[in-house]
Design a protein around this nucleic acid. Structure first.
Lengths: 252, 252
DNA sequence: AATGCAATTTTGTGATCACAAATCCCACGA
DNA sequence: TCGTGGGATTTGTGATCACAAAATTGCATT
């Protein structure tokens, strides 16, 4: 079937957008291993669509740095190196620090309440030992702050940066959580938002990011590589166990 | 013809990449007016290629914010508003300030020489009243600094931001240049790079960007719009003078 | 002259086809 | 046992086709 009509309202229901959302979700939830090759036809087959929307979605992800492309024109999940982590750390400190500062000046009472709620849910999930929910809520907490800044371009840039660190934050979560210093920093950040102290909000956000990504950088081996040099191909020639669960089209 | 072989070396010779480069050039050189509608078929016809590479190139530019897409799925050059300029100003101060600081720590003697050369060429062009060369050299000066930072992800982000401000910097150049404070700031920046003073380099870069974009923001009318609310369509139905020179495929 | 409204054209989207470059596989020989 | 070469397969790229939603035009009526 060539197409299905577009509902009157609803944001973007194009297949391209759904494929994009699906791949994003697959990346942030760690469904693809770093270094893994991902072919257009594999994704198209998995999602039951033609190559066209897959190509556009994957090209966009390549442009965003979530995938990388060999000179031999094959697409893979980027391998992380110490240098790249340190670069991302410094960029994120700037941009997410800026967003926190803006949020301190602009956040509404409702937005602060939402941020506080996310902070509570992190504690609950962590006490239960529920890693998946923990990570999800940490993400919600951060993006609730960034959304409160009310700067759409800034938000878009930050989303792109999270997408690049995403697969690794999942992979390294166990090591990572054990070094966490707990909810004190988030509490101080929330207080800074309440009293409109942009400088303090920025400082707390920068400190949090510096700690997290410096920790990740220290996990690098002597060659500067961070995760397993795991090859793996998702294009499956030679059956391949296909242990990874197939992913599905996301409605956006 | 379906394809032409790819040279052994050379970066990316795909049509998609060439179309992307062509549109980028057209945007930064002000060949498209803000608010102008740009259709896939128009670009494809102008460049003599099929829709496929044009779609991929333009979608990427939409993702980067260089084009924007109506809910009715038509692509246009974004209109600039005061709020957007101020947001871009603050983001660029952070990122380009960071790049300048990193450049101060990492720039080689050769790189500094190249930066100094660009600074000289700005002066020459400006004295000649050659606006086009002036703008080009200003761009080269800045990107020579950013390249010296040696941070590929940071460089990519900055390029995306310049692409968003690009069409307007051209449009507003005459007003803009009259308010410029001359080469003193660039000279101080170069000196900071030479003595490896990251703090001073960052300060100079931030000051430069703040001044330039604050000036642009002040050009907004009472509605917050900056450039002409010029409609215009490049899809040309109803002949249209077609004053704009056709643009060409770029080799990268 | 202004305003609806239907017919026509334009335009974005997705599927499919053709082709060449990469990659893989397997047999063959040192 | 370890390359090595050549044929088969996979895979990205670009062109083309089909279709529906939008935009535009043309005409009729007030």
């Amino acid at each position: 079937m060539p197409r299905t009509a577009a509902p009157p309202d609803a944001a973007d229901t194009s297949l391209r957008q759904q494929v994009y959302a699906s791949l994003r979700e697959a990346l942030t939830s760690g469904r693809f291993a770093p270094g893994q090759k991902v072919t257009f036809r594999y994704v198209a087959g998995e999602l039951g669509v033609s190559l066209t929307p897959v190509r556009e979605a994957m090209r966009r992800l390549v442009a965003e740095g979530a995938f990388e492309m060999n000179p031999n024109r094959s697409v893979r999940v980027p391998l992380m190196t110490r240098d790249k982590v340190l670069e991302l750390r410094d960029i994120r400190m700037e941009l997410e620090g800026l967003a926190a500062a803006k949020a301190a000046l602009a956040a509404t009472r409702n937005q602060i309440a939402g941020i506080r709620r996310a902070a509570r849910e992190i504690i609950v999930a962590r006490n239960r030992g529920d890693g998946a929910t923990d990570r999800q809520k940490v993400r919600e907490f951060h993006f609730a702050v960034y959304a409160a800044a009310g700067q759409p371009t800034l938000l878009r840039l930050i989303e792109g940066l999270w997408l690049q660190t995403g697969p690794y934050m999942n992979l390294l979560y166990p090591d990572f959580i054990s070094s966490s210093r707990g909810p004190a920093g988030r509490q101080r950040l929330i207080e800074a938002l309440e009293v409109r102290d942009a400088t303090a909000a920025r400082r707390e956000m920068e400190t949090d990011i510096r700690r997290a990504l410096s920790y990740v950088a220290d996990l690098a081996d002597e060659n500067g590589n961070i995760a397993p040099a795991a090859p793996a191909t998702a294009g499956k020639r030679r059956s391949q166990p296909t242990t990874a669960a197939a992913f599905e089209l996301q409605a956006n």
